[in-house]
Amino acid sequence: MNFASDNIVGASAPVLQAIMQANAGAMAAYSNDEISKRVKARFNEIFEREVSVFFVTTGTAANALALSSAVPPYGLCVCHQEAHIIDDECGAPEFFMHGAKLAGLPGMGAKLKSDEVAAYLQGLPKAVKQMPPKALSVSQVTECGMVYALDEIAALGAVCREHGLSFHMDGARFVNALVALGCTPAEMTWKRGVDILSFGATKNGGLMAEAIVVFRPDLAEALDYRSKRAGQIISKGRLIAAQFEGYFADDHWLENARHANRMAKLLSEGLSGLSGVRLGWPTQANEVFPIIPQALDRALKAAGILYNSWTEISLPESERVGADEALIRLVTSWATREEDVRRLLEIASSEVSRQAAE
């Protein structure tokens, strides 16, 4: 049973079928094919307006290239101190921004608050010695499994407009947040002030399907060239685009995310009902962060259940992980089986009962 991440499972059947269909025959290269054109038009429909779409193969490429379009080499990008772009991408955003910096701010649940971002921006020196802030980046879902509500996104968007910043959203788990909020893609992005989006599909059934979706034409202007320099204009681009065609068909992407979120809710409710177990953060999408006794941690690992330990940096101020406890992350996916979730809960319940009896 593997709950280490949602990118450990393969691609979904509709995505693979779409790739197989696109594989036949000869088509124009470098995303000049009819499939790519159809998928880009589909993005326009999904976001309820004309957008610029750039297909890439990884989330790191999407984030790094998106930010490179918004932040000059002398600029600053503000993000959370545990954001994926600052913690998990080996400096790729700074590399593609040609030396620009990331500034990480604290925040419970890896979320940024608009008033705290505004205070930080207002406190920056305006002299030429200080790198000027040029963009704000948020993760939706955050690295602690939390979802920005629509009013929170709008408030951050307003701060960006007031201070002249571009607003980037890292949407590696975009659709998990989307179904959690029950809103439309437009409502969660440009209608709330987002300028550029890293749209992830790989964690939700894609093989290697990521896209940069740009709502501001000026940010799209150089992305073709930046993508080429980064090796992200794929010769057989139709096989990247085809994944999105299978992904979007019959609302497959939405159902995949709903299933992942349901499995996380089942897991979260079962674990939090056990004695000695509590949640570090509320379960809002497809990630569960329980604080568990170390004895239970050992028992789960001994049973062959795979997951990751997690940092407590962004826990609520009143919450701490005790010396005999562990904070762990369990992630569910579109392919998570309910029987595996229930089996994990059985193992955990049995161990808790055994400990109580000793």
Score class of each variant (00 low, 15 high):
Asn7Lys: 13
Gly10Leu: 07
Leu16Ala: 13
Gln21Ala: 12
Ala28Ser: 13
Ala29Trp: 11
Ile35Lys: 04
Ser36Lys: 04
Lys37Val: 08
Lys40Pro: 05
Ile46Asn: 07
Ser52Asp: 15
Val53Asp: 00
Val53Ile: 09
Ala62Met: 03
Ala64Ser: 15
Leu65His: 10
Ser68Gln: 12
Ala70Gly: 08
Val71Asp: 00
Val71Arg: 00
Pro72Lys: 02
Glu82Thr: 13
Gly91Met: 06
Pro93Ser: 01
Glu94His: 05
Phe95Met: 03
Met97Ser: 09
Met97Thr: 04
His98Ala: 12
Met108Ile: 14
Gly109Thr: 00
Ala110Glu: 06
Ser114Gly: 07
Tyr120Val: 00
Ala127Thr: 14
Val128Leu: 11
Met131Trp: 15
Met131Ser: 13
Met131Cys: 08
Pro133Ser: 10
Ser137Asn: 15
Val141Pro: 14
Val141Ile: 10
Ala149Ser: 07
Ala155Tyr: 01
Val159Pro: 00
Val159Arg: 00
Val159Trp: 00
Cys160Trp: 05
Leu165Arg: 02
Leu181Phe: 06
Leu181Ala: 05
Gly182Pro: 09
Asp195Ala: 04
Ser198Pro: 08
Gly200Lys: 03
Gly205Ala: 04
Gly206Met: 10
Met208Trp: 08
Arg216Glu: 15
Arg216Lys: 14
Glu221Val: 04
Leu223Gly: 03
Arg226Ile: 08
Arg226His: 09
Gly231Lys: 08
Ile233Trp: 10
Ser235Pro: 08
Arg238Ile: 03
Gln243Tyr: 03
Phe244Tyr: 15
Glu245His: 07
Asp251His: 11
His252Val: 05
Glu255Lys: 14
His259Val: 07
Ala260Leu: 06
Met263Phe: 07
Lys265Ala: 09
Ser268Pro: 13
Ser268Lys: 04
Glu269His: 09
Ser272Asp: 14
Leu279Trp: 02
Pro282Glu: 14
Phe289Gly: 02
Pro290Phe: 01
Gln294Ser: 13
Arg298Met: 06
Ala299Lys: 08
Leu300Asp: 01
Ala303Ile: 06
Asn308Ala: 13
Trp310Pro: 03
Ser314Met: 11
Ser318Phe: 09
Ser318Cys: 05
Val321Phe: 05
Gly322Trp: 02
Ala323Leu: 07
Glu325Asn: 09
Glu325Ile: 03
Ala326Asn: 07
Val331Arg: 00
Arg343Pro: 03
Leu344Ala: 01
Ser353Leu: 12
Ser353Pro: 02
Arg354Pro: 10
